Amino acid sequence: MIIDTHLHLIYRDRLSYPWLQDVPPLDADFTYERYISEAARLGISSVLHMEVDVRPDDIPAETRMVEDLSREPGSLLRGVIASCRPEDPGFASYLETQQANPFVKGFRRVLHVVPDDVSEGALFRENIKRLSGTSLTFDLCMLPHQIDKANALIDLAPDVTFVLDHCGVPDIKGHGYDVWKTGITEIAKRDNVLVKISGIPAYGDLDNWTLEDLKPYFEHTISAFGFGRAIWGSDWPVCTLGGGLSTWVATTQALLHGCTVEEKNRLFSGNARQLWQLG
């Protein structure tokens, strides 16, 4: 069975998503019902919702919306990775509120859409350190040239568990393997980081990527982190840009050819279950 640790739901009638206007294929409603109609056929048994960079004043409403969806009969939603703004003075109060909600499993602040120095601010770094001792994780969504900034955050908070999204967002279409590989090797040296095997078809040639295009990135990521620090995510609906949910599940299975049952189980479910205490 599969735990999907990276589902985005888009309900434009309930929340505001300013960035969607720049990505017309995603500027639509991607509902839980639409997702589950396909996911239920693929062995996906539990799901974590990943924040979708809603308008800042909609952040609490996004968490409430997903939690409400999780209460519907038969829902596979088990928690959220909530949006946050560690650069804001109100983060400490926000953290206290979210920490009291067991449905919140961690946080993410997308950092490749803001100036590089946002993560270098004193307040941002102080607030990341506040996650120490909370069991809440922090997802890193950063480009290869920003890996040094990710490492700086990780080193400041060795007691916080970080999750590197999308294999470190490699530029597969632009053949950016060497720069990406160096960064992955370096960040993987830090024991408090896991990597998410997710999203990479969207970084290849959307119309013509092949298994062979993705294989070097998958193989080096696993070589650097090992199966003990890798988790799986769909990145739906972004994955629809590069083939869709079924294609990504099948591609992952093909990439895992020759791996042991234990290795596959750790990637698809075991590590996520342990990290976020999922039933």
Rank of each mutant, 00 (worst) to 15 (best):
D4L: 09
D4R: 08
T5A: 07
H6W: 05
P25M: 07
R34I: 01
A39L: 07
G43A: 09
S45W: 03
V47K: 11
M50W: 04
E51K: 08
V52S: 15
V54R: 00
V54K: 02
T63G: 13
L69V: 04
L77E: 13
L77M: 14
G79Y: 06
Q98V: 00
Q99N: 12
G106W: 02
G106C: 02
R109D: 04
V110G: 11
L111E: 09
S119I: 08
F124H: 03
F124V: 05
R125K: 14
L131G: 08
L131F: 08
S135N: 13
L136I: 04
F138M: 09
D139R: 09
D148T: 13
P158T: 04
F162T: 03
F162S: 04
D165Y: 00
K173T: 01
Y177W: 10
V179E: 14
T182E: 15
G183R: 13
I200R: 00
A202N: 12
D205R: 05
L206V: 12
L206E: 10
T210W: 12
K215T: 11
T221Y: 06
T221N: 09
F225G: 12
F227K: 08
I231A: 10
D235N: 15
A250G: 06
T251A: 14
Q253W: 04
C259T: 15
F268I: 08
S269P: 05
N271W: 12
W276Y: 15
L278W: 02
